[in-house]
Simulated assay, not measured.
Amino acid sequence: MNSNRHVLGLSGGRDSAALAIYMRQRYPEIDVEYFFTDTGKELPEVYDYLTRLEGYLGKPIRRLNPDRDFDFWLKSYKNYLPSAQSRWCTKQLKLKPFEKWAREYLEAGDTVISYVAIRSDEEYREGYQSNKDKLLVRLPFKEASIDKSGVIEILEGSGLGLPAYYDWRTRSGCTFCFFQQKIEWVRLRERHPEAFEEAKLYEKSAIEHGSPFTWSQGESLSDLEQPERQAQIREEHERRLERAKARLQSNPLRPRQTVDLDDVYGGAAKACLTCHK
């Protein structure tokens, strides 16, 4: 007998965690299968947060690992780094493992309903576009008019709170995500110097093989980490942060509005939906 399979992908980030909590609280009758597609290059804070989330949900989060790792695909793409123009990392390390997993259900005749954490204040974003009749996408936050403030309320109300890396970064996913702002690269070097050094090695090899891309637009990580350049990046970030705070409208119903890096740089629209939720 065919059935419906309800799945929800977690990135280790704020929005998808809030959606998992929301589904458990509002729709306890739905047996949701939670999954995380592991690139093998995630921040330690991501794994810690997923473990805590498992405790709250009371069920395991399935780890989907790609058949081949980042190094394999980097070589396959002629040592060209992934970029906003060529997001092969998302395709090979995130989407394909999910599609392979979902295909098992679809081939058995089941309908797969995927819940995606796109908020009501993200009009510019679309969910995973399925070309399968029995792979359906649902957007509960849009349907319930839940925005960023609502997401934060869900996380705080559950006691889970935000992932620890939100203290210094808003990008979940790979340590060397090319969507990072320059201030996030500076902070990555501070918090996880070994990951920064690994990213530098990948970049050096890619440049030697003719890659037109560096991890951070317009400059190499070796240039970015120079003390005087780091000081410039910090100063520019502080100026942007003050401007973002000044733009934030006072809302008496939500006095604890926060400013994150997407507010400062307006980069959410450009971010990778699969990794940054």
Score class of each variant (00 low, 15 high):
His209Tyr: 13
Gly210Ile: 02
Thr214Glu: 02
Arg229Gly: 06
Asp223Gly: 02
Gln230Glu: 14
Thr214Arg: 01
Glu238Ile: 04
Gln230Ser: 12
Glu198Trp: 06
Pro193Trp: 00
Glu238Asn: 11
Leu224Asp: 08
Tyr202Phe: 15
Arg234His: 01
His192Asp: 05
Asn251Cys: 12
Ala199Asp: 04
Glu190Arg: 08
Gln230Arg: 14
Trp215Cys: 00
Arg229Ala: 09
Gln257Val: 06
Glu228Leu: 09
Trp215Asn: 05
Ser220Trp: 07
Lys200His: 03
Pro255Trp: 03
Arg256Met: 12
Glu194Ala: 10
Glu238Cys: 02
Trp215Met: 11
Lys204Pro: 00
Glu228Gly: 02
Arg229Met: 12
Asp223His: 09
Arg229Asp: 07
Arg239Trp: 09
Arg240Thr: 00
Leu221Asp: 11
Arg239Asn: 12
Glu228Asn: 09
Leu221Arg: 02
Glu208His: 05
Asp260Met: 06
Arg243Asp: 14
Arg189Phe: 11
Pro255Glu: 12
Ser222Arg: 03
Val259Asn: 06
Phe196Ser: 01
Asp223Tyr: 08
Glu198Ala: 10
Ala195Ile: 00
Ala231His: 09
Glu198Ile: 00
Pro212Arg: 01
Pro193His: 02
Glu198Ser: 10
Pro212Val: 05
His237Tyr: 15
Leu221Ser: 09
Arg239Tyr: 08
Thr258Pro: 03
Pro255Asp: 06
Glu208Leu: 10
Arg239Cys: 06
Arg240Pro: 04
Glu198Tyr: 05
Gln217Ser: 10
Leu221Ile: 04
Ser205Leu: 12
Arg240Ile: 00
Leu201Pro: 02
Gln232Met: 11
Asn251Trp: 08
Arg239Leu: 13
Ser250Glu: 15
Phe213Ile: 04
Thr258Trp: 09
Glu238Asp: 14
Leu241Val: 08
Val259Asp: 09
Leu253Phe: 14
Ser211Thr: 14
Ala199Met: 03
Asp223Ser: 11
Val259Glu: 07
Glu238Trp: 11
Arg247Lys: 15
Arg189Trp: 11
Phe213Pro: 01
Phe213Met: 02
Ser205Asn: 08
Gln257Glu: 14
Glu208Cys: 03
Val259Arg: 00
